[in-house]
Amino acid sequence: MSGSDPHTESPSSEQAEFHRLFVQSQRRIFGYILTLLPRLADAEEVFQQSCVVMLGKASQFAPGTDFVGWACQIAQYEVYNYRRRLQNERLCFNENLLDRISARYRLQGDRLDAELDALKGCVEQLSPTDRQLIRQRYSRKITARALAAELGRPANTVYKAIQRIRRNLRECVERTVSRQDRTYGPNSPAEEERP
């Protein structure tokens, strides 16, 4: 430590590539974890731990291979570890179902990207007040009930409004992606065609 400036070491190109992939894939990995552990606080904790493990195992990643697949494998292991510490009443899904959801998630990767692209356009089409509400709901990471309390509105009113916005977004995304499927033909991004 002493005798040299610790800030001057430059990372190797492999390290730089790893970090690029790591940053690029974080959103996808977080989505994967939240799908397996739907409670936000649980997912955030496992995401954090998974990131630590991934960085610790960076040297084990083979450049040129599927980074997201590698990362999801680590995240899945961390999810299972975490579930073992959870009390039963907080657990969603049995392990068999968890495996099937996990397999399906990886299969659905390209479609999820297309859906996220479509989502941005669909959010744009929401009314300003709906956009505002959904943003309020998520920016503070509080549930509709807590948001309602903050806004001084009945919880059910806010809950129903958020439910309606989600339904609108869902329908808009499905419409947009199915239109793109028709445009590009049956062998493009739709995950159903992938092996």
Partner: peptide, 13 residues
Amino acid sequence: YISEMNRHANFVW
């Protein structure tokens, strides 16, 4: 389920 949760995760993110 995966599509819905992925949208949810995206908003959180």
